[in-house]
Design a protein around this nucleic acid. Structure first.
Lengths: 233, 233
DNA sequence: CTACAAGTGGAGCCTACTCTCCAATTAGCC
DNA sequence: GGCTAATTGGAGAGTAGGCTCCACTTGTAG
């Protein structure tokens, strides 16, 4: 790979200078390390862990990503692209209900698979990043998906685009508490919600199994020692 | 008030000795301060804030409550009693659906009003505290409430007691993200869920208004600067 | 091959919080 | 009023993570 095939000013918007080849390499390793660490430990993982995992000094991390948010935005660019693509693909599913509900399920599954992504979708990112643009894309795709389903008469009329965010936030809450102890509990929440969103007609899907009370107990025990409250997470 | 009207060994289970009057007073001030601080800042608020608010040295706090969890348990004893009472009162509401749904709404409202309580109900507490007993009381009350509603044919048969925890966790997720920016968003989630739990028959209640996209935007902005992921919350 | 700008790493400072130790204080009993 | 054990508060040690500074290294253009 020749060094200058990248769009300019990737990192710092101001000086707009191309990175030296080794610097670009380190940047990539940082993003890769951040992906792993954020996925496992959440968006508030220690930055030193990320630098260490990337085999790079902590200063290098700070030089490339002056704020945690910039690192988050860069790290989740690819995943947000998947997010946006998922939404757009759903528009091509012939059945409007299958498109809508499958999309919601996939988005929630993405949350379930990645601790950082769980909270990422419920918070704002700094403006003027690629991430913001991707979110806009996803947003308008979702609006179209909702509209299509409503026009087909399969999605309740009083459903609004903001409800999608509500779903993701609720799902984040369930995942925070049950990710370890009852890793499928979120599916049941999502199934309940999809059922209530659907205009009746189809026989409702059977619900995913409820977590057992033992699982819930363990989930709550585990969550006690984890970090308490909330998001930027 | 004469000092010895309390049940024994309130604080440390081991030495089982009555507290001196001034110590008992300080203990009460600590619990009161903790109530305020936890409500506002969540269960991971700095303990020094609590000691300061109680006008008591930090050492006094640690002497009375060697672990944060013990302080949490003592602080939320009263609130857990309200929780349990709410459930039991609901059993006396004549209409089984009104009893069940009103109870869920009230529990979620309690979460909305108190940041610490939001996460408290989704985590485990140390055993052998009064708090544990209260939770057991609430739990069996809820089981009865669920059973009564199902026997009356107004609550879907596949609803299980663990689903109540799921609701509280989902509600916690919404509250974490929207408490400041869209303080009524949680009502919409709960309305959706109650609608899907109900066996059809009654005309569904109209949904609470959706948060505006501006509110959601602000909520996500605010949540960005708050602490990311999760609870022992 | 050389010069120099770009890039690097980690020591080290700062802040925030948890938790302990102990000399000084005070409530309760006589 | 005075004795004694219970209680107190705050200094300070320990820990974790954020962030910066600067002497050293390295890529690359000429």
């Amino acid at each position: 790979m020749s060094p200058r095939l990248h769009e300019p000013d990737r990192a710092t918007a101001a000086p707009c200078r191309a990175l030296r080849a080794d610097a670009e390499r380190n940047r990539a390793r940082l993003v890769e390390a951040a992906r792993a660490v954020f996925a496992e430990s959440g968006l508030d993982a220690p930055l030193e862990d990320i630098a260490e995992r990337a085999n790079v000094g902590i200063a290098t991390l700070y030089r490339r990503f002056p704020t945690r948010e910039e690192l988050i935005a860069a790290t989740y660019e690819a995943q947000l692209a998947v997010f946006a693509q998922t939404v757009e693909d759903a528009l091509h599913v012939p059945d409007p209900w299958a498109g809508f509900s499958g999309c919601i399920e996939q988005l929630c599954a993405m949350q379930a698979e990645n601790r950082g992504f769980t909270t990422l979708v419920t918070i704002a990112l700094p403006d003027s990043t690629e991430a913001t643009a991707l979110r806009e894309r996803a947003k308008s795709g979702l609006a179209a998906l909702v509209q299509r389903a409503q026009e087909a008469g399969v999605l309740r009329e009083d459903f609004v685009a903001e409800d999608v965010a509500l779903i993701l936030m609720a799902n984040a809450g369930v995942l925070r508490a049950t990710r370890d102890g009852a890793p499928h509990a979120w599916r049941r929440l999502v199934a309940y919600l999809l059922e209530v969103f659907r205009v009746d007609g189809g026989e409702p899907e059977p619900l995913p199994a409820a977590p057992t009370s033992m699982q819930m107990h363990r989930a709550m025990m585990a969550c006690r020692t984890a970090q308490p409250h909330c998001p930027a997470g």
